[in-house]
């Protein structure tokens, strides 16, 4: 929108008042409370939750191998799961967008159905599918690929599988609109000039849709950082992601100051990583 067409005065801005009020009441105010509580005192006697105060005790607790380990595994899971979802999701979405309308709609409806499953159901289903007693390893035994059924959960691979599966429909839905908008004449031109389909995909389609791919990867990364049920159900204690630690402190232990401080720290890390990714992504596009 150009500058001179912007609405002026109070009245045209009134429609924004409602969302602004909601955002203020239900996001900014609770957030401010969280910031304040993160500096409160936690009584050593264990009696009570917190006392009003101002100290950095809870922030200083981060400097321990425990939290470093868990933040690293959280970043690792979020990054790898986002990457895998985009790696699988992008070719799928692109080729889907080249299909005729009807199969496209059917596939999208199917994906939306998967989306309606909650994280709990997805994690539980994978815990059964990866189990020794009822899992897919029995199928591999039947095929003769495995000597005896194996138990693949809980473990690193199981968590990654669950997270990627859960992310996939989101990846498709984020990338789908841009994929459909890519003019077919461009790829046809590449083919006419002698490029193979594979070469066209990597040298024309991927660079043109790079911003979309990056957007999907960033959104999925942030989204996965907060995963809770999947690592709890499919992982061993060393795979528990940061959200589990925060929930432990807030709900099980009633340690609100520490839970708030953990959340602040977690948010800062996530924002920093997103900023870094966006900057790197931009540099690549400029090149």
């Amino acid at each position: 929108m150009s500058a001179h067409s912007r609405p002026r005065g109070l009245v045209p801005h009134l429609p924004f008042a409602w969302p602004a009020l909601m955002l203020g009441c239900f996001f900014l105010v609770p957030f401010a409370i969280m910031v304040v509580v993160s500096f409160f005192h936690r009584p050593e006697s264990g009696v009570g939750t917190y006392e009003v105060g101002f100290e950095f005790t809870h922030y200083l607790r981060f400097f321990s191998p425990l939290f470093a380990r868990h933040i690293l595994i959280t970043i690792e899971f979020a990054a790898v799961a986002a990457l895998l979802s985009v790696l699988v999701g992008f070719p799928f979405t692109y080729f889907l967008s080249r299909f005729r309308r009807r199969p496209q709609v059917l596939a999208l409806v199917f994906i939306l159905c998967v989306l309606s499953l909650s994280e709990v159901i997805v994690a539980y289903s994978w815990s059964v599918l990866l189990s020794r007693s009822a899992g897919i390893s029995n199928f591999f035994v039947w095929l003769g690929l495995l000597a005896k059924p194996a138990s693949w959960t809980p473990g690193y691979g199981a968590v990654l599988f669950g997270l990627t599966y859960f992310n996939l429909p989101f990846a498709v839905l984020i990338m789908y609109p841009q994929c459909t908008r890519l003019d077919t004449e461009i790829t046809e031109a590449a083919r006419t000039l002698g490029a193979s389909p594979l070469r066209t995909f990597f040298t024309v389609v991927v660079p043109m849709l790079w911003p979309t791919i990056m957007t999907a990867a960033i959104v999925l990364f942030v989204f996965t950082m907060g995963a809770f049920v999947t690592p709890q159900w499919l992982g061993r204690p060393q795979h528990w992601m940061f959200a589990i630690l925060i929930s432990d402190q807030a709900l099980t232990r009633g340690n609100l100051p520490f839970a708030s401080a953990l959340s602040m720290f977690f948010m800062a890390i996530t924002l920093a990583l997103v900023a870094l990714t966006v900057r790197l992504g931009r540099r690549k596009i400029e090149r």
Partner: peptide, 17 residues
């Protein structure tokens, strides 16, 4: 109640270490 936070952190370290 008295040592809950300490037990929690000590154990978390032992468990995921």
């Amino acid at each position: 109640v008295k040592n809950g936070d300490w037990i929690n952190e000590t154990w978390a370290n032992m468990l995921s270490g």
